[in-house]
Design a protein around this nucleic acid. Structure first.
Lengths: 154, 154
DNA sequence: GATACTTTAATAAGTTGCTGATACAGTTCC
DNA sequence: GGAACTGTATCAGCAACTTATTAAAGTATC
């Protein structure tokens, strides 16, 4: 067996690949009755419900006013609920409802169902190369998010 | 040295990681004076200019009417040009201009600059794991795109 | 514990970017 | 050379965003 040279990771190449890949991935969209921002809010809440409106404003890329309106729409659809914050009478805590969690789960299941057959067409080596990279990609997301939180506080 | 078990690739786990990662990546946005669709059109043209309006309509997730309007805006900003198709008098070929290519390149450079310092914080093993996975990710994008073209023809 | 300041969310008015329907010019087919 | 079809543009209407403002609750100071 010939020895494998581990290639070094070039940020420019990685960004190029990530963008190509995303171009494909974001076009795997299941049914969307909701706007991009609305879905993003719902997805965020699926991970860390309940959240204040202000927290949501910080994570999404829109104004506080837009978040208020998005949450109102989601509430009318029964996907989230507004409840008072017992610790702060000014604040509102947005909770995701079972119906909201269901929407997120269904969209996720749909994308997995579309991704799986494509993965079948890769070689075993390609699949295991991706599997081996997943922990590192997850760590980048964590590092990046904590960095964004730092910036948010400024 | 203990032998490493190559883990098998689970589509569900991959989708979860991809979405976590994208949640981080799409929030690395440089200056955006343009809408999501507008930037997406410009990005598509950066790779395969010139294109007909109909082709753009097929790749983006909006109506033909929206594409006409997006191209008009981009044209007013000097980022693309409409030229007649010599082979078909009804059609229009949208060409990206140097200024348009510049916008795409600048946005790309900006994201690379933000990604690079985060990659520095990974271990050498994590970086080479990602580097080893890039060709496979690129291939998924190719496989997925050709599949979408099939659907488009229906 | 009254006064001023800050923080959190909601509301109002205006703008932008999309959709759906329709029009029109160029192409194809017989 | 007329009918049917294709590719793009236009128009009216609507949804989702922005900025600016307001209301209400909390905090600090004295």
């Amino acid at each position: 067996m010939t020895e494998k040279r581990t290639p070094d990771l070039d940020p420019g190449e990685m960004a190029a690949v990530v963008e190509e890949f995303n171009g494909f991935y974001i076009r795997l969209p299941s049914i969307q009755r909701h706007s991009f921002t609305t879905l993003s809010v719902l997805h965020t809440l699926a991970r860390r419900s309940p959240m204040r409106l202000g927290e949501l404003t910080a994570t999404e890329q829109v104004t506080q006013s837009a978040i208020t309106q998005v949450v109102t729409r989601l509430e009318n659809d029964g996907l989230v609920e507004r409840r008072p914050d017992p610790r702060d009478g000014r604040a509102v805590l947005v909770h995701i409802t079972p119906a909201g969690a269901e929407v997120v789960a269904a969209r996720y299941a749909d994308r997995v169902a579309r991704l799986a057959p494509i993965l079948q067409r890769l070689s075993a080596e390609e699949r295991s190369a991706i599997a081996a990279a997943l922990p590192a990609l997850r760590r980048i997301a964590e590092l990046g998010e904590s960095q964004n939180e730092q910036r948010g506080r400024a």
